[in-house]
Design a protein around this nucleic acid. Structure first.
Lengths: 207, 207, 207, 207
DNA sequence: AATTAATCGAGACGGTACGTCGGGTCTTATG
DNA sequence: CATAAGACCCGACGTACCGTCTCGATTAATT
């Protein structure tokens, strides 16, 4: 995470250049998108952002921190949906997720999460930002459905979360491995199919 | 992949040390498990394996190749299950997956897959080994169920695959991020729950 | 050299802090004495002097200028001697030189002179301050001796200068390399010996 | 000094490239000569020598060590003279010194010696190489003269040393500060004058 | 008193060099 | 031939310093 705290640290010296943070994060995501982890260099980021290396290191302690934050700040509010029905909400959520993973920054976010879960250290605030926050999204969606009497109160949101997130992730992974771009139509179709499977089951209730 | 071909290529000079390949792969997985991608160095692997760097580079052309193969050779036959019922097969499959991801090598395999899917190049043979082969496993399982008349022929195996793999992956990810070890009981319970959700849906068919 | 001109430039704004110049020069000499040229940093000087860097750069344009002036302002009037005899004057002069080189600032002055004579540029005013001024001192001393008829008019002051300065320099260098401090007695003895050698020669005129 | 020890450390690995040491030292002297201490960079030296930085740092632990050794290895045998008379030997010696100081490496050697005598540390072997060895040269010259009965045994070689070295140094310094090149004729004349002064004194024995 | 203008301490800025370390190649002596 | 050792060139790492810049806070001389 950045070393900047909320309060602007209004003190004596020259204030930090306002746009720099943003420019560096943009540059970082572009570099990462173009070259992957190997080939993602701090010198390259600084050069692309048009700042000195010290300006970067003044804000992030090392390469990992920069990339981690760059990626997490670009992770939007996926779960801010309210269509009125559970099926609609979940479908919209899956749709949002697909679109997020289609972007380099969104996919990078996932890669970094998996990496962080491997090394037994330094996951820090990243867990909350990427995992908890988004898990809560489904929690609220399901809770609204229970309140409306749409589903029985026995449904456990976490299990739904795992299934929906997992399915979207795997479909995206498959598409990426085959170098196949997901069109908006693909996404709509897959989202509907996933939610149908999760809500109705594979045994053909709809039949 | 390794440059060794099946035939031992017995020629004039000193034959390759028999155990080296294995020792290097073990060392690679241990290093990757301990330090992650950054901090996974060829010097470190060679030193830990007790061999020279040239011995490593004689068998793998670069760092990626070594790690990729190291990880894929440790990926067992997950889908070799046949319990007689679709539900049993899938539950067993999910169980196997959980156990695989619990191991460092198994989890590393997943990380590398995600990494490979980021860079738009050089995924090579890895796709087949990790993705296709395992996707086929579910294909066969479902096909047997259709043949038995257990499920309608309209079920699309790929969608089941994504959901089951995805759910197991996400549950494991969550556990890892919270530094929570999955016991055998946890795994059995989660496997059953996932398969129940996938087969019966969230709307409470069991009710 | 400093950009301050003699007249205090009294205008509207806040006047320069009176003691700052002196404190900075002191700090510069101490830093140079402790760490040498490498390790002599402007940040260090400013911190030690308790001023901001801008205060330093407002007075000297760069590192070299500061160090050069710091050193030359501490170089006292070496040649202001008049004992009545040539031998006495020269002995006193050598004595003064020894004492100057024993001080960190004096020795630093010498180091910088040698450094300036290496790079074929930017010696500027320093030459006059350190070299010419002091050379003139001996010139005047010898001229007085000629006027008194003490020595023939054929004596060339420059050659005497080189010999006396050089001998003192070399003796000091030797002592420093052996980490040997020169006491006042040492200095008196060496000064007398040097002047005796220069005036009478090595062939034993005194014999 | 270099970290290479006398024994060639004949072991298993690839032997150090034979010419590298020399090429690096040459490059270092050229860079130092062109740019002075500031502007003398390790990257520049490595690039000019056509080697990697690690190759440089494998042999010298830091910038100072490299420059120090570079300079001391180029300091030839100044005192290897034997003309048969003391006056001839000393004149030849002064001549050699002048020529040495005229070269960039020779003058750099002097600068570094003065620098080393300032910082109270890390002079190491440099003292012997540059100071003692050359001091001994005059010692032997004077001893031969005493043996021949040319001068009384009371002459102290160290004092002669200081005077001759010092005078040559100061004359060279003066010439450099005035950006005046010393021709061979200048050198011959100055050498003779210095030795005459030292041997006969300033009071005009020749008169 | 209010305004103006220069200086002050502090410290961020774009660069550049430092000394370290890892990647992948190459070269030896030893199996 | 393969091997262990390790030197090689390259380039990124994270740190430190240079000389510049921008800030809020002083501090006079001028309105």
């Amino acid at each position: 995470m950045s070393t900047t705290n909320g309060e602007p640290r209004r003190g004596r010296g020259r204030p930090r250049t306002p746009g720099a943070e943003e420019r560096i994060i943009d540059a970082a995501l572009e570099e990462y998108g173009e070259h992957g982890w190997a080939g993602f260099t701090m010198d390259g980021v600084a050069r692309r952002a048009g700042v000195g290396k010290s300006t970067v290191y003044l804000r992030w302690q090392d390469k990992d921190s920069l990339l981690t934050e760059a990626v997490s700040t670009r992770t939007g509010a996926i779960g801010a949906v309210d269509t009125g029905t559970l099926r609609g909400d979940l479908t919209q959520l899956a749709d949002n997720l697909f679109r997020q993973f289609r972007e380099p920054a969104g996919w990078a976010s996932l890669r970094i999460t998996f990496d962080a879960a491997g090394a037994h250290e330094r996951l820090g605030r990243f867990t909350e930002a990427v995992a908890d926050v988004q898990v809560d999204a489904i929690g609220r969606i399901v809770q609204r459905a229970i309140d409306r009497g749409e589903v029985p109160a026995t449904v456990i949101p976490d299990w739904l979360t795992a299934c929906v997130y997992g399915a979207v992730t795997m479909e995206t992974l498959g598409a990426r491995l085959e170098a196949r771009e997901l069109t908006d139509e693909d996404i709509a179709e897959r989202s509907a199919a996933i939610i149908e499977l999760v809500m109705d089951g594979a045994l053909g209730r709809s039949s």
